[in-house]
Write a protein that binds this DNA or RNA. Structure first.
Length: 270
DNA sequence: ACCGGAGCCTGTTAGC
DNA sequence: TGCTAACAGGCTCCGG
């Protein structure tokens, strides 16, 4: 479920309880969670490592540890991370636990079990191939123009392609296209200069709003502390099928593009 | 290059 | 109420 704003919110919330803490142990009840290395090697290499910094790249959380190791987590559809006392009753959906020196635990709860954990010396092993960060200073209108150049794909699936731009998911793709006034089925190379600028602004605007509102709790997403975000109260089209557009009053439609639900306003997205 | 479909999982919801 | 099918915010692989 989590997209860039939800992952960013999670990273920000985990810094206070985790930075400076020492990991002593890893427990796992769903082997496929751990991509690399093996569980036994992960346990050996992570033991005694201190969490130095935590950052986000696309939808990945990066925990930079002492000793040159980086723990990388992807939440996929249903992942959730929280730091709780080790005495907190177990939850059946917590499949990976990082025990800390003082008995607290970083728990990876993941109902659908799609989440992934990596421990690597070089994060590029995992992150190579990702497109640019849409909120970085280097992601300019000109950069987007060059990315779109020569691409014949439809805008919606292109925005979801993590090798094109990294971090946008289904909610924010629909919201960005609505903000930009662009139909999700437009071809990437058909945009005018003004439309490229609108798309650029739309992408940055909805992602920044998502972060400001601490994520969209539309289905199950909650912040690490269990509280809901507020972005669900600020969406213009996502899952608003049949309701009227706040901008033009037309009825929001749902179609399927690239096997994904797509919501847009036929009145103001062309 | 691009598209569609299947697959990975479990839980919730819509429809009959 | 109960059953079934569809659907879910991610991503990968495969074939055409």
């Amino acid at each position: 479920m989590p997209e860039l704003p939800e992952v960013e919110t999670t990273v920000r919330a985990l810094r206070r309880p985790l930075v400076g803490r020492i990991i002593t142990e890893v427990r796992n009840s769903w082997p496929r969670h751990i991509v690399t290395p093996s569980l036994s090697e992960l346990q050996r290499r992570i033991h005694g490592c201190r969490v130095e910094t935590i950052e986000r790249r696309a939808k990945y959380l990066l925990f930079h540890l002492s000793g040159g190791e980086t723990l990388i987590v992807h939440l996929k559809m249903s992942g959730h991370l929280s730091v709780v006392p080790g005495t907190t009753p177990p939850d059946k959906h917590v499949h990976t636990i990082f025990r800390l020196a003082d008995g607290d635990e970083l728990r990876f709860r993941d109902t659908r079990k799609f989440g992934r954990v990596y421990l690597v010396k070089d994060p590029q092993e995992v992150l190579a191939g990702l497109g640019p960060e849409p909120l970085a200073d280097t992601f300019t209108v000109e950069a987007l123009r060059q990315l779109l150049h020569g691409r014949t794909r439809t805008l919606k699936p292109l925005l979801l392609d993590q090798t094109f731009i990294a971090g946008i998911g289904n909610i924010y793709a629909d919201e960005a296209l609505h903000d930009a006034g662009l139909h999700p089925e437009r071809k990437a190379d058909s945009l005018s200069e003004a439309e490229i600028a609108s798309l650029h602004q739309g992408i940055q605007k909805v992602l920044a709003l998502g972060i400001e509102r601490e994520g969209a709790s539309i289905d199950l997403y909650v912040k690490p502390d269990g509280e809901k975000g507020d972005m669900q109260n600020a969406v213009a089209v996502f899952r608003r099928t049949g309701q009227s557009c706040y901008r033009c009053g037309a009825t929001v439609q749902r179609i399927v593009l690239g096997s994904r639900s797509t919501h847009f306003c036929p009145g103001c997205q062309h």
